[in-house]
Design a protein around this nucleic acid. Structure first.
Lengths: 329, 329
DNA sequence: CCGGGGGTTGGGAACGATCCCACACCTGAG
DNA sequence: CTCAGGTGTGGGATCGTTCCCAACCCCCGG
């Protein structure tokens, strides 16, 4: 910290201080190519004496690499971007990005939004894309030039590695728990029909229903709390003998709780309620919500890290979901 | 979309297609300097025919501007970064950044974290810094080179524009509401003592207590739900006649609700509870939480926009907070 | 008719890093 | 002793953009 110019140090400054050429300094800093141990130590010393941080812009420019990660969340409207789930993904990616000199930008992707995807592909600023709420058509419409620079939080494909929670497994655990505690008329509030993961949890539900000979009571959902309220009302009206409601999202489950309360129905006495995601507030509801964990932060971190490192990720990375039994079921 | 090369178009491609020089094209795209209307229209036509997006890296490099916005959240531990409030700020900034070719990175700033601040100042990748949970010492330790590129979500200074909610006003509204509904022994769960905004709400509380001759029952807090639970227990033990608890954060208030429920205390029958922030789930608790709004998204958007545009912002921008009366008070 | 002074244009030098390539050195085998 | 091949080094060219500056055109006043 002896020399403290007005402007940040450049590689030239480091090289000059270390008494080597810019090329050698570059090799040492980037950790690529040959360098004698003597040169290596002098360069690193000079670098942290000057507080040198490589300019990501210059680096990206010459490498043709792009300077930020784009998080593209698809949904029926731009309101998806206000979803706490998406916010968590962005925050995790932003945390990963810093050390790599990468920033994160957030974009709405209409359900069949190939145009927006094209735009992202044409933007030299974009190093990689994190797809949230990935759908099949979107995967099919993926521009060639994006290949190898995309990670999907959801379904993947041959070109697109997938990072996802095992929601089939999580749903199964929740449903077994419900069954084990004597519930026999279980309704389920699913996710949006266009979302592939909805299939998985619905399949888990249908399997249990078939195996145990239970009725299938499926309600469409959209992960929102408001929908949970409405779904509770609907379930009570259509199937008055329902003794459990499983919503595949905690906000929806909390909405269900509120809806049932409005009808004077006791939880878990009359009806058991379970959610999915284990959001922080799930532990605080009355009664505290039984749910299955969903390590969003870890998933997003893994996806962003893969993109930042530029390494080819495993085609499918699945994170386990575990049952968190509390009071509501 | 006639010409669709493998790689994104450059300014040269645009210039060539438009039949002008790179300089002229640059002037048109950047909207700086002279250009005939003829040239202007031909360049813009060529640009969107090729789907041209300027390379933020090259632009940042030559302008010496930096390519991302850093969100620096201070707190006692890196756990602040998991705070939904911080996540919301990051998401808002990431949404703003895209169109400017800016990404967002997220960093933890220890309470007296001048070193980390220095590092941010020395990073050429950083265009501007959004300070979250700003403290006075931090403001004092701000490196000179960061001047004019910082926005504070909280207190500001001569060099640092401030973007904040009117929490004094919000707190006053909540407290008046409590008083108006007959509560006379009001306890308050404050924010962290090192946070300047804590002062403001505490002052509002003390003013009401003095003016109306009420007892002062102040409990320290940290915005977490866990702390709310503990605070409820503490309040009940120390001041059994308490008839209202105001927590300056919704998660804390929900924790208070849970804590009181654990003691079999009825809300709002025995004790009224109010929060601050109006998080989405506040409407779903049992009873639904009375609170004051806190437009985090709008605040962060304003701060990020100011930084992205590079314009000098007004020294202080205050966003109103309004009372949201629900069932808990 | 000539000399400015606007509006408009293009050439070229930056910006800071990477990386290809040529070169220097050293060691050991033939 | 020479030569091959591995290790280490430095000189440019390069990425895509901005911006300074010189050159040009044209119109108008002297």
């Amino acid at each position: 910290m002896t020399t403290r110019a007005d402007r940040p140090a450049t590689l030239d400054d480091v090289a000059r201080l270390a008494g080597v050429s810019r090329s050698t300094a570059s090799r040492v800093i980037a950790g690529t190519g040959f360098a004698s141990t003597a040169a290596r130590s002098r360069v690193t010393a000079a670098a942290d004496q000057l507080g040198y941080v490589p300019d990501p812009a210059a680096r990206a420019l010459v490498r043709g690499a792009g300077v930020r990660l784009a998080v593209a969340a698809s949904g029926e409207s731009a309101a998806v971007l206000d979803d706490p789930y998406v916010e968590q993904v962005v925050a995790a990616a932003a945390r990963v990005g810093g050390p790599y000199g990468l920033g994160v930008s957030l974009h709405w992707l209409p359900l069949a939004g190939s145009t927006e995807l094209q735009r992202l592909a044409e933007d030299r600023g974009v190093r990689g894309v994190v797809l949230v709420n990935t759908t099949e058509p979107l995967l099919a419409a993926l521009p060639r030039s994006l290949r190898g620079r995309v990670a999907s939080l959801g379904v993947g494909s041959a070109d697109v590695p997938s990072f996802d929670v095992d929601n089939g497994g999580g749903a199964t655990q929740v449903l077994r728990h419900l069954y084990a505690s004597g519930r026999r008329r279980i309704a389920m509030v699913a996710g949006p029909h266009w979302l592939p993961c909805t299939q998985r949890s619905v399949r888990a539900y249908e399997r249990l229903a078939r195996d145990a000979g239970l009725p299938v009571r499926l309600l469409p959902g959209d992960f929102t709390a408001e929908r949970g309220r409405a779904a509770a009302r609907e379930a009570v009206r259509r199937w008055p003998d329902t003794d459990a409601i499983f919503a595949v999202s905690d906000p929806t489950a909390l909405g269900v709780l509120a809806g049932l309360r409005g009808h004077g129905i006791d939880v878990p006495g009359d009806v058991a309620v379970a959610g999915f995601d284990d959001i922080p507030l799930a532990a605080l509801s009355a009664p505290a919500l039984t749910t299955a964990s969903h390590p969003v932060g870890r998933i997003a971190t893994a996806a962003a890290t893969a993109l930042a490192e530029g390494a080819r990720a495993a085609p499918i990375t699945t994170f386990p979901s575990v049952l968190i039994p509390r009071e509501s079921a």
